[in-house]
């Protein structure tokens, strides 16, 4: 059919339907146009701060104070990024953060997989009670536990066992990642409850026949879990790990009690908030100002530019991970949402 013919055909049909077809077509077009505008606007709204930060990273100081420059830098420079990198202490915190993220994430995933499987497939007394405890764990804000955790880890002890061995004194676990490991192995780390929930949801959706077949063939319980259900759970485990890694990366609560720069271990999240302060300090040293009054010497706009640069540096690894594994992030949530 040529174009002309098609048009004629459409006119014919439209006439037959009494103008309904044309009206519908126009409405459809208007609807789609509005939807596109709306979605574009909202996407822009979300991305705008990020784009803003990126553009700030590449501005020179002149551009920053030039009111005619809004988002695209006139003089391109990487000076802000270099300074931010320096104020973030170069590689070290990144290295530590990666270490902690990987170790802790793996541990967290292992323990929550086990627990999730236990909740999904076994009937045992008080099951509902324990599951309510998982929910409680999700609900309790970690900030509530800050102080007691701090005290506990400065004098660590498991039900009096360590004290008995160590001669009446607990171990100070602050400043080492043993504290992290202990918390995560016990499924009590940052958002662990959520991972348990996700894993449970995953195992619940798996067909029960698989296990029954294994049971009939004489497979033990642990063996069934290990060689039959675990391979199927791998995508979910990967997503849990990614979530864990990303959330530990930006976590400021646990890292604040467990680490500080003075302790020799510090994460990216430890370093980021102090960037402006350090910039001030640096400036004072350069210009040899002996000020006891403190306060900000650096103009706030400049400080914020450096802070933005440092933030971007911190975010780059996460953004890369997200771009690569976007699907597994989103799908794991949508899987666990089913049957809430």
């Amino acid at each position: 059919m040529t174009r002309k013919e098609r048009r004629a055909y459409f006119k014919e049909r439209n006439r037959k339907s009494g103008g309904y077809l044309l009206r519908k077509k126009i409405w459809n077009f208007i609807f789609r146009f509005c939807r596109a505008v709306l979605i574009f606007g909202l996407c822009f709204l979300i991305l705008q701060p990020l784009l803003n930060k990126i553009s700030l990273c590449f501005m020179t100081k002149d551009d920053l104070f030039d009111r005619t420059v809004i988002s695209i830098p006139r003089h391109f420079s990487t000076q802000a990024i270099r300074l931010g990198w320096k104020l973030m202490y170069h590689f070290k915190p990144f290295w530590y953060s990666i270490w902690i993220g990987v170790l802790v994430g793996v541990l967290q995933v292992i323990s929550s997989t086990l627990v999730g499987y236990g909740f999904a497939r076994f009937k045992f007394p008080l099951k509902n009670f324990w599951f309510a405890c998982v929910i409680l764990m999700i609900i309790v804000p970690p900030q509530t536990l800050l102080t007691p955790m701090y005290l506990m880890f400065s004098d660590f002890d498991i039900f009096g066992i360590i004290k008995a061995v160590h001669g009446g004194k607990g171990v100070n676990l602050l400043g080492s990642f043993w504290a992290y490991l202990a918390v995560c192995a016990g499924c009590a780390g940052y958002k662990s409850g959520l991972y348990i929930y996700m894993m449970r949801q995953h195992f619940r959706n798996e067909p029960k026949e698989l296990e029954e077949a294994a049971w009939v063939d004489g497979c033990g319980k642990f063996r069934t879990f290990w060689s039959i259900l675990l391979p199927g759970a791998r995508p979910m485990m990967v997503s849990c790990f990614l979530f864990a890694f990303v959330w530990w990366w930006t976590d400021g609560i646990y890292s604040r009690i467990f680490f500080s720069r003075g302790m020799g271990w510090y994460t990216v999240a430890n370093c980021l908030p102090g960037v402006v302060e350090r910039l001030n300090h640096e400036y004072k040293q350069i210009f040899n100002i002996v000020s006891s009054s403190g306060g900000n010497f650096v103009p706030p706009a400049y400080g914020n530019q450096i802070l933005s640069a440092a933030t971007m540096i911190t975010l780059v690894p996460i953004i890369i991970i997200y771009l690569l594994a976007q699907k597994s992030f989103v799908e794991s949530i949508s899987q666990s949402g089913i049957k809430g």
């Binding site: 236990g118 324990w130 955790m149 918390v183 016990g186």
Partner: peptide, 14 residues
């Protein structure tokens, strides 16, 4: 057995 890690962690850290 499967949920022991959680029970221990729950008691100890929560």
């Amino acid at each position: 057995l499967f949920i022991t890690p959680f029970i221990i962690g729950f008691l100890l850290f929560l």
